[in-house]
Amino acid sequence: MSAVAFERVTLGYGGRRVLADVSFSIPQGAFVGLLGANGAGKTTMLRAILGLVGPASGAISVLGRPPTRGNPTIGYMPQARRALPHPGISGIDFVLTAAGGHRWGWPVATAAEKEAAWKALEEVGAADLARRPLAELSGGERQRILIAQALIGDPKLLLLDEPLISLDAAHQRVIIDLVHEVAERLGIAVLFCSHEINPLMRAVDRVLYLGNGKAAIGSVDEVINGPVLSRLYGTPITVMRVAGRIFVMADDIELEGAAHVHDV
């Protein structure tokens, strides 16, 4: 059974078509980097997997079933919020909002919800952060809390939307290694959305690259090369490898050199 499968899927958002006749399959347990320029459809694809956006045509399968809203087998970490829900909310209370759906804090949380929240925090090594206010945590510490929230309910598929934004290189490595280790230990498939491949090189099994309404999936070498990316971008692309890093160039401009924002 595939973790995610798209069969000739066309997706649109806000009256604009972002993916056209796209097919691919992600096996269970795979760690996949979801890549593509701003507007390529990365976030729209995640929303479709979550059942929040329906395909205009084609079929989507998530762990053997059609996408549904609130699927407990999916853990989702949205792109980091610029503003916290409340400056004084603690890590444990924030994680509990996922355990109880809409609940906040200890007074209304059940024993089972508290147990699930602590288990998730322990999975990512963040139990010592649980009582501290989110506003006092560093970017990397806050990302651990967000990942813990996504692990509530023992999901089989983890969707991470740009978790590396605003982190320096050292903290990026920590978060990637953390997600990779947790996913391997728990047997979870990961779709890790990022604006560039280099931070993910050590972790990914394959990449899913979106561009110009199309998609390509395979190993890093199979996908991130001049011919494949030229087809996706619809313009000549040069891929350079220097000192173990990959640079995707169009007319001497590095396409992956700056962080992208949400597609939608």
Results as ranks from 00 to 15, higher is better:
E141F: 02
I224H: 07
R206C: 04
V53D: 04
A258T: 13
P78F: 09
V9T: 01
L167W: 00
L146A: 15
A126L: 04
I74M: 03
R65L: 10
L96D: 10
L34P: 10
R69C: 09
S25W: 00
E181Q: 11
V62D: 08
A48W: 08
Q149E: 02
A56F: 02
V179D: 01
P87L: 06
I253H: 15
I197G: 08
A3Y: 02
H195T: 00
L137S: 01
G14C: 01
G75D: 13
G91T: 08
A5D: 08
A109K: 08
G226A: 15
M77N: 12
K42L: 07
T97E: 03
D205P: 10
H102D: 00
V182Y: 00
V4C: 11
R82H: 04
G234I: 02
M240H: 14
A30E: 11
P227N: 07
L34D: 13
F31P: 09
G140T: 09
I224R: 05
W104P: 00
L11I: 05
N225D: 04
A169N: 00
A130M: 13
R185E: 12
F24L: 09
V242A: 15
V228A: 03
G101F: 10
L52W: 09
M240S: 15
L137K: 01
E115T: 12
A37T: 13
A98H: 06
L159H: 01
A169Y: 09
L160T: 02
R16C: 00
I188A: 07
A109V: 02
V32C: 13
A169R: 08
L232T: 01
M249L: 15
F192C: 01
E184G: 11
V248A: 04
G29E: 05
T235H: 06
G29R: 04
G70I: 05
I197T: 11
R65A: 08
G75L: 06
M240I: 14
V228C: 14
E136S: 15
G101W: 09
M45H: 00
L50V: 06
L167G: 04
L232Q: 05
A135V: 02
A258F: 09
A150F: 15
M249W: 02
V53S: 02
E254M: 08
L35E: 14
N71L: 09
T73M: 13
S2T: 11
A130P: 09
A56D: 04
G36R: 12
G211D: 01
L157F: 07
L164P: 00
F31K: 08
M45Y: 02
H171E: 14
R245A: 14
A126K: 04
A216D: 07
K119T: 06
W104V: 15
I60K: 05
E7I: 03
